Computed example of a mutant assay.
Amino acid sequence: MDEQGLLTRLPASIAGRVQSIRQAEGTVTLVIDATGLDAATREAFQTACRDILGEAEGVETVRVAMMADKARRRIIAIGSGKGGVGKSTLTANLAAALHKMGRKVGLVDADIYGPSQPMLMSTGGAKPQAKDEQLLPVISPLGIPMLSMGHLVEPGKALAWRGPMAGNAFGQLVDADWGDTEILLLDLPPGTGDVQLSMLQKHKPDGAIIVSTPQDLALIDAQRAANLFDSGKVPIIGLVENMAGYACPHCGEVSDPFGRGGVEAAAEGTGIPFLGRIPLALAIRAASDAGEPPAAGDAPEGEAFTAIARQLAEWLDTPQGAGA
């Protein structure tokens, strides 16, 4: 069996990371990009390669080299068609969950006019330094590097910038010195304006997640965001339904003040994966206001975020997510 035939025997999550494969005299040698993989996953990949390829005809020995000395940074945009749907809260919790999984993740608050990540990540008083004309990210208490326009202007000060100025500011945040960061989450402003256009032109994401609440108006705006990513040939990883279900803290009865299932139905109608729903919960609001993303801990309110982050991590390990 030739090298290509051996490669097709491997799962997509592994095959997408194979940098080279060579077979000679019964020995198969693979070089696998281990960027972003924790120790347990690297060991599991090595074992899988040996077990699967070791069964191929003519293969006597399988050697696996895991290489991660060159970072391949991937950009994931989290967007919405309108404001107030919980996009920033989702982004902060995805960053916290990925960091907890051992991924080298960074966060850019690209909402130039209404930055909220400094509060959500407890970095409100931090000021980034600069080196060689590049900004150096601030580090959140969780250990996540991040940058926001909220770190560069006085708290509460309004920004009255024209579109090109906002686009340039966004570029400075993304082009910062992110070191060995491998996944950069972009918390986009609502809508489809200048920042989004600058993103598509100069910092095209590897994938996008769209957030919406269940009501029809929000779904219409979310479809506009999806159309923007489609026009830029950015893969849409999936849709998330936020504020879906409110459990009364007194009686426990669950109600749906904003409706339920609209985003999932929209996902089915468009063929876009549905990643899950986030409940409307007082605990999530309180933790967010305190700058403590629920996904960073073990509280029940963090589970929905972690489940979505896990799907994002799995997508990043596919050939499409890995840029293969």
Rank of each mutant, 00 (worst) to 15 (best):
V240K: 01
A266W: 06
I284T: 04
R224Y: 05
P235F: 04
P279W: 14
G245T: 01
A247R: 10
R285E: 01
E268M: 06
R260A: 13
E264P: 06
G238I: 00
A281R: 10
E241R: 03
G271K: 02
L282T: 15
G238N: 09
G261P: 14
D256I: 10
M243I: 07
E241V: 08
F274N: 01
C248R: 12
A283S: 15
L228P: 00
P273H: 00
E268N: 05
P279F: 15
A281Y: 10
P257R: 07
F229Y: 09
A244Q: 01
A225G: 07
A281N: 11
V263G: 07
F229P: 04
N227W: 07
A286K: 12
L282N: 14
M243L: 11
R224P: 01
S231T: 15
A286Y: 03
C248D: 09
A283H: 08
R277N: 11
I278W: 12
L282H: 14
I278S: 08
D230M: 11
G259Q: 12
P279T: 14
I284F: 02
V240S: 08
I272N: 05
A286V: 10
G276N: 11
G269V: 03
G238V: 06
E241M: 10
G232H: 06
I237W: 10
G259Y: 04
D230F: 06
G232T: 05
G269N: 09
G271Y: 04
C251L: 13
V240R: 02
